[in-house]
Amino acid sequence: MTTLAQGKRTSRRPGGPSVGRPGFAWAVPATVFFGLFAIVPLVFVAILSFTSWNGLGTPQFNGVDNWVALAKDPVMIQSLGITVVLVVLGIVTQTPLSILLGVWAAGHQKNRAVLSAICFVPLLLSSAAISVLWRALIDPNFGIPGELPWLFGNGNLLGSQAGAIGVLTFVGGWQFIPFHTLIYQGAARAIPPVLYQAAQIDGAGTVRSFFNVTIPQLRNSMITSLVLMLVGGLTAFDTVLILTAGGPGTASTNTAYYMYQKAFLGFDFGTASAIALVLAVVATTISLVVVRATGYDKMRSTQEGL
């Protein structure tokens, strides 16, 4: 109803910017549904963060105890640093590779379709499959390190912080680069050929047209991909759980995994809720900053600039 009323009202101003715009009612069903199953539980988590609760009986309010304890918890503080390192490493390794692969896959070479189909299979694998597969592959005696001692030495990849973080970054790339490649492939295909022709006339080679034409045209895709990597990287713990269990010691315990540990190994739901809240707020803030700083939320097409 609201929609129709608004539609009529706005159409009385012909030529105005909001001609035939849909009312807010269009957004309501999805928002209510989402609010009920995601935002309400999140509010509940926010309340739990001020309680002490092991999942049994009634949560006991304990004020800001969980927050104070977390602020002093060395593992929590260390985990923030590890999270930053993992997210940054993820972005700097995955972004260039995804761009290169996406641009390449957008071309018209023979066999490209088959190759890119295979490349995207990791997208389809569940975490159970990835865990079993990679655990077998990184075994120091019988996996890949055992076959290539000149590269991996004694294969004790999970024995040092650098090794553990390296493994996490590599497997993370294996798992997620296909997805980001897909984003760039789509965007690269949509670049008007006329831009390349113009660059060629100006005497630009492959490398120069890549940097002068392709990269600027992929700007919006980079932002999308960046937001997904940031948010995904901040909140991901599956690979940590599966591959290093946060070790050696706590050297690869990122904040999301620390939350999982608190919640489902220690059943300290109060502290886990506080960590979850920190993560959700930080991730949302960062993605909002990215979206705002780049003007992405203005919802304007790159095409308009042409």
Partner: peptide
């Protein structure tokens, strides 16, 4: 040994060391 930090029982790594005589 030197690389036990990276070996697991649950995925068959350490039982295999014993079984293969390593």
């Amino acid at each position: 040994g030197t690389n036990f930090d990276s070996v697991k029982f649950t995925d068959g790594g350490s039982p295999k060391l014993l079984r293969t005589g390593k």
